[in-house]
Write a protein that binds this DNA or RNA. Structure first.
Length: 780
DNA sequence: TACCAGAGGAG
DNA sequence: AAATCCTCTGGTA
C-alpha cells in the first residue's frame, strides 16, 4: 500500500490545487504526486438569532463579495442544537481570511466558524485521508543531516561540513577542505558546491523523511542564509520547492514539502524525561552507550590548523552526529507515525503539536464525520477569563510517615478517561433538556448533570480511543505469545497503544484548557469531583475492611493488611477487596492491583520509596528523581534508601553518608557529580529574584556565552562569593576541585539523606557526630 | 523570621 | 501554550 507522506497546496491557473505526496510500494521509485483540483475552500456563517440561513444567504448575495464562489444552506449540529447554517465557498484559500471578519460583522450573521483551518489540513479531514497509513508494511526512506559551522564570533560565517546518513546505507561528510584520508569524506570545490551536493543527494536518494536535531532553529536557517549569500535556491522539496522557514510561536519550523522534516529535538523533549536534551544525552539514555562528543571550542582551531589528524576528528564527530540522529529517529518515529495516523494530520505538524492540539485535531476530524460544526477558538479576552476560572483537582492522602511493610498498591485504570466515559461528561450534553427529572441524569459531586439518553461527542470519541487501545494491546500480546520474529510489527503495535494512551490521557486536561475549542470548566471540574469521590469512598471501604490506607494520590491506594497473615490469606483479602469495589463501579471503570511491595518509606505527600521482593526500588518525588539536585546527593540518597529498606541497616546507611562527607571535604568527588541542572524558564532580565542558576547564567553571558530562555543551566557552587547565587558558576567556568564542600554537605547531601533517616527517628547531629550515638538496632 | 518566586515532580 | 496538587530552595524585606 502506498503511504501518504505529506500534503500541500498551490494555486495553478487561478485555481487551488491540493498536492498529495505518496511513497509508492517500490523502494526504487520516487514519490507519486496526486493533484486534486476539485476541492474549494470554505467556512460557515451562522445566522443571527432573529435571522435564518435564507435571509443570510440573500444578504450575502446582496453584498456581492467577488471572492465567494458559492453559497449553500447546510444542516449541522452546533453543540446542542441542529440548525441551518450557510456554507460560504470561496475561490481561493486566501479569500477566507479576507472576508470572514466582514461577514461575521454583518447584522444577519451571528458568527463565522471553521474559518481558521489551513486549507491542506481542511482537505485531509474532508477527504478522510490518513497520513502515514500503511507505513508498517512500506517503510519510508529516511535521511538525517547535520552541519558544523565556523563560529568565531563574527557574522556571515561559513558552513564547514555537512554530514548525512540514510536508511539506504549512504553515510557521507561533505566538505571543501580535506587533508584526511577518511573514506566517507567527499571534498567539494567550495561551500556552495557542498550545499549543492547535499541537496542533490536528498533528491537522488528519493528521501521520504528528513531528520535533524534542532534543524528548525539552527541547521535549516543557517543553510538558507548561505544559499542566499550565493544566490542559489535552497531546494529540498519533493516537488522541487524551496525549504520554507515558518514562525511557530516563539520558535521556527523548517517545512520541506513532500518530504516531512521531523526535528527530533522537540520530539525527544516530549517523549523522554531527562536532565538535558543534547544529542549526546538522548543517545546515551536510549542506547546506554556514550556517543563521541567534541568540545565546540575546538572546531575553529582544528579547522584552521589544516592538520590531517585534527580535521579527521572533526569529520568523525560530524559523521557520528548524523548517524546518531538517524538512529534516534528510528527509535522515536514509530510513535510519530502512529500519532500522525490517529490524528490524521501530516508528520510535520504532528511532530510539533502540543497535547492540546493533538486532541483538538482528532476531535475536529471526528466532528466532520458526525455532522458537527466545530466551535471557535476563544479570543484573547475570553481565554484570559477562562484561565482565571480555577477549579478543584485531585485528592491526595496525607501519608502515614515512616516505614511500612507488606504494602499492596491498587489503582484505578485510566481514572479520568473512564469517568468521562462512564458518566458521559461532555460540553454539549451537560445540563441537557432531556434529563431534567430526578434520576434521569448522571449528577457529579460538583453538581453538574450529564445526559443519560444520548452519548456525547467527546466521550464518544474517547471511548473509541480506549477501545482501540484495548484491541491493540490484545493484538500485541498475541504477537508476543506467538514468539514471532516480527519485531517491527511489535514495535509498531506498541507505538500504537502508546499513542492511544497519550491521547486518551489528554482529554481531561483538554476540557480544562483555556484555549480549547471544546472547553468546559464544568466538565473538567466534574471529572475531578468524581475522581475525589471514588478514591475517598474506596478508602472508606478499605478502612471498613480492616485494612490501613498508608497513602494515596488521585487514583492510587497504598494499603497494609493486619500483621500475621500468610501469603494465601493476603491474596484472598486482595481479591475480595478488588471484586467488592469493582462490583460497585460503573462498567467503564475498574480498580486494578498494581503490585506488592515488601517495604516502603513515606516522607511527605508525593515523596516516598517502595522496595519489592526483587530488590527493585521505586522512588517518587524524592531528590533522587529531581534534576535540580547534584548526583552526589541523589546517589547517596538512593544508597541510603536501599540500605534502609533492604538491609534494614540504618547504621550502615549513616556510615555511607559519613564517608561521602569525608570524600567531599577531601575533594575526592569529581565535578560531574556536583552539577546542578536548572532550566531558565524566562529571559535573564525578567527574573524578580536572582537565583543561583540565573546568576551563573548571567556571569557566563558576560563572558560571551549565548544564553536563551529554555536552556538548562548546568552549574557548580564554588567558594568564590558570599551568597549561594554569587558562588554559582556554569560548568565550563569551574576547575576540578573548585567547589564549596560545605555547601554540598549542608545544602545537598545532608538534606537529601536526612529526609530518609529522620523518617526513622535519627537526628542530624548524630550523623555529624560520627555516629557514636547511633544505637537504634533497626526500626520498629 | 515570614513570605515570595521559581522549579520540578506526581498522577 | 492539557489540568491541579504539592514540596522544597534561596532571595528578600
Amino acid at each position: 500500500m502506498k503511504v501518504l507522506l505529506d500534503a500541500s497546496y498551490s494555486v495553478v491557473d487561478g485555481k487551488p490545487t491540493i498536492d498529495l505526496f505518496y511513497k509508492p510500494e517500490s523502494d526504487i521509485e520516487d514519490k507519486q504526486l496526486v493533484s486534486v483540483k476539485d476541492f474549494d475552500p470554505y467556512f460557515y456563517a451562522i445566522p443571527s438569532l432573529g435571522s435564518d440561513a435564507d435571509v443570510l444567504i440573500d444578504a450575502l448575495k446582496e453584498a456581492n463579495f467577488p471572492q465567494i464562489k458559492k453559497l449553500e444552506k447546510v444542516r449541522l449540529i452546533d453543540m446542542k442544537d441542529e440548525k441551518d447554517v450557510v456554507k460560504v465557498v470561496t475561490l481561493l484559500p486566501k479569500n477566507v481570511p479576507e472576508i470572514r471578519d466582514r461577514i461575521g460583522d454583518m447584522r444577519q450573521c451571528r458568527e463565522v466558524r471553521e474559518a481558521a483551518i489551513r486549507f491542506t489540513q481542511r482537505y485531509l479531514i474532508d477527504a478522510d485521508l490518513t497520513p502515514m497509513k500503511g507505513v508498517a508494511d512500506n517503510k519510508p526512506r529516511i535521511a538525517s543531516f547535520d552541519i558544523e559551522t565556523y563560529h568565531a564570533g563574527g557574522t556571515g560565517e561559513p558552513i564547514l561540513m555537512i554530514s548525512y546518513a540514510d536508511t539506504k546505507g549512504l553515510e557521507k561528510v561533505w566538505t571543501y577542505k580535506n587533508t584526511s584520508e577518511l573514506d566517507f569524506v567527499e571534498t567539494l570545490a567550495d561551500e556552495k558546491e557542498m550545499i549543492q551536493r547535499f541537496m542533490d543527494t536528498v533528491k537522488q536518494q528519493k528521501i521520504d523523511i528528513l531528520l535533524t536535531y534542532n534543524g528548525d532553529n539552527f541547521d535549516f536557517g543557517f543553510i538558507k542564509d548561505r544559499c542566499d549569500k550565493y544566490g542559489i535556491p535552497f531546494i529540498l522539496g519533493a516537488d522541487g520547492s524551496q525549504v520554507k522557514l515558518e514562525r511557530r510561536g516563539m520558535d521556527m519550523g523548517a517545512r520541506v514539502t513532500g518530504r516531512p522534516h521531523v526535528d527530533l529535538y522537540p520530539v525527544c523533549r516530549r517523549v523522554f524525561n531527562l536532565p538535558r536534551y543534547t544529542l549526546e544525552d538522548v543517545y546515551a539514555s536510549i542506547f546506554g552507550e556514550e556517543k563521541r562528543d567534541i568540545n565546540v571550542e575546538d572546531i575553529v582551531p582544528f579547522w584552521d590548523s589544516g592538520d590531517p589528524e585534527k580535521l579527521a576528528i572533526l569529520f568523525d564527530y560530524s559523521m557520528e552526529d548524523a548517524k546518531a540522529c538517524l538512529k534516534i529517529g528510528l527509535e522515536v518515529l514509530p510513535l510519530e507515525y502512529e500519532l500522525s495516523q490517529l490524528i490524521g494530520q501530516p508528520m510535520f505538524e504532528v511532530s510539533r503539536m502540543s497535547s492540546g492540539n493533538k486532541v483538538e485535531w482528532l476531535l475536529m476530524r471526528r466532528a466532520k464525520g458526525e455532522g458537527l460544526i466545530v466551535p471557535n477558538r476563544p479570543d484573547d479576552r475570553e481565554m484570559r477569563e477562562r484561565a482565571l476560572g480555577k477549579y478543584e483537582g485531585a485528592y491526595v492522602v496525607e501519608p502515614d510517615k515512616g516505614i511500612h511493610e507488606n504494602i499492596l498498591v491498587f489503582d484505578f485504570k485510566s481514572l479520568y478517561p473512564s469517568i468521562i466515559i462512564a458518566h458521559n461528561v461532555d460540553p454539549a450534553t451537560i445540563n441537557c433538556d432531556c434529563c431534567k427529572a430526578e434520576g434521569d441524569a448522571w449528577v457529579s459531586p460538583s453538581g453538574a448533570r450529564f445526559c443519560k439518553k444520548k452519548k456525547g461527542f467527546v466521550p464518544g470519541v474517547l471511548e473509541d480511543v480506549i477501545k482501540s487501545r484495548t484491541r491493540t494491546k490484545i493484538e500485541l500480546k498475541k504477537l508476543r505469545e506467538l514468539n514471532s520474529q516480527d519485531k517491527v510489527g511489535e514495535k509498531m503495535l506498541d507505538a500504537k497503544q502508546l499513542a492511544l494512551k497519550i491521547l486518551a490521557n489528554s482529554f481531561y486536561g483538554y476540557m480544562g484548557y483555556a484555549r480549547a475549542r471544546w472547553y468546559s470548566r464544568e466538565c473538567a471540574s466534574a471529572v475531578t469531583a468524581w475522581g475525589r469521590d471514588y478514591i475517598k469512598k474506596t478508602i472508606e471501604k478499605a478502612n471498613a475492611e480492616g485494612m490501613k490506607v498508608v497513602y494515596g494520590d488521585t487514583d492510587s491506594l497504598l494499603i497494609t493488611l493486619p500483621e500475621g497473615l500468610d501469603e494465601k490469606a493476603v491474596l484472598k483479602r486482595k481479591n475480595e477487596f478488588l471484586s467488592r469495589i469493582n462490583k460497585a463501579l460503573p462498567p467503564a471503570m475498574e480498580l486494578e492491583f498494581e503490585g506488592f511491595y515488601t517495604r516502603g518509606l513515606f516522607v511527605t505527600k508525593k515523596r516516598y520509596a517502595l522496595m519489592d521482593s526483587n530488590k527493585k526500588l521505586t522512588v517518587k518525588g524524592l531528590e533522587t528523581k529531581r534534576r535540580d539536585w547534584a548526583i552526589i546527593a541523589k546517589r547517596t540518597q538512593e544508597e541510603v534508601l536501599r540500605t534502609v529498606l533492604w538491609e534494614k541497616n540504618p547504621e550502615k546507611a549513616a556510615e555511607i553518608v559519613k564517608a561521602t562527607i569525608q570524600d567531599l571535604r577531601d575533594k575526592k568527588i569529581p565535578l560531574k557529580d556536583l552539577i546542578i541542572h536548572t532550566q531558565l524558564t524566562k529571559n535573564l532580565g525578567q527574573y524578580a529574584n536572582v537565583a543561583p542558576h540565573v546568576y551563573a547564567a548571567k556571569k557566563a553571558q558576560k563572558r560571551g556565552k549565548t544564553i536563551h530562555a529554555g536552556d538548562v543551566i548546568q552549574y557548580i557552587i564554588t567558594r568564590r562569593g558570599k551568597s549561594i547565587s554569587e558562588k554559582a558558576e556554569m560548568l565550563g567556568f569551574v576547575d576540578e576541585n573548585d567547589y564549596d564542600a560545605e555547601y554540598y554537605i549542608n545544602n545537598q547531601l545532608l538534606p537529601a539523606v536526612m529526609r530518609i533517616l529522620e523518617a526513622l527517628g535519627y537526628k542530624e547531629e548524630e550523623l555529624k557526630g560520627l555516629g557514636r550515638q547511633m544505637t537504634l538496632g533497626g526500626f520498629s
